[in-house]
C-alpha cells in the first residue's frame, strides 16, 4: 500500500522503467494500480537502434510483475516522509 501511494504521488513525472527482459522504457507516469501495473505516456525505449520493436508505440501499459526497477525523479521523493511512513506501516503490521 505504501509503495502504491508513493507511485501515485509521482503521476505526471518522468520515470524510467527497467523490465526483467532488460528493456528500459522512459515515459511520463500516467497511472498505477494496486498490482503496481504502470501506464506510461510519451514513451522512449533506451537504445532504440537495438530495440526498434516499439518505434510506433506512443504509450503503454506495463505489467507490474515484469518490472525490475523504476528510476524515480529524486527531487520529487521526500525521503524523510518515506522513512516515517515505512516505520508507521511496519508498526501497524506488527500490532495486527
Amino acid at each position: 500500500m505504501l509503495i502504491f501511494s508513493v507511485f501515485k504521488t509521482l503521476t505526471d513525472q518522468q520515470v524510467t522503467v527497467e523490465l526483467k527482459n532488460d528493456l528500459s522504457i522512459t515515459g511520463v507516469l500516467k497511472s498505477v494500480d494496486q498490482f503496481l501495473n504502470i501506464r506510461l505516456d510519451n514513451i522512449k525505449v533506451l537504445d532504440e537502434a537495438r530495440h526498434p520493436h516499439m518505434m510506433a508505440v506512443k504509450n503503454c501499459f506495463i505489467r507490474g510483475s515484469v518490472v525490475r526497477y523504476v528510476q524515480l525523479p529524486p527531487e520529487s521523493v521526500d525521503t524523510q516522509l518515506l522513512e516515517d511512513a515505512t516505520r508507521r506501516e511496519s508498526a501497524a503490521q506488527t500490532k495486527r
Partner: peptide
C-alpha cells in the same frame, strides 16, 4: 549509478 530507485521485491 542511479539517484533514486524503486526495486521490485520479487527480485
Amino acid at each position: 549509478k542511479m539517484d533514486m530507485l524503486f526495486v521490485r521485491g520479487d527480485g
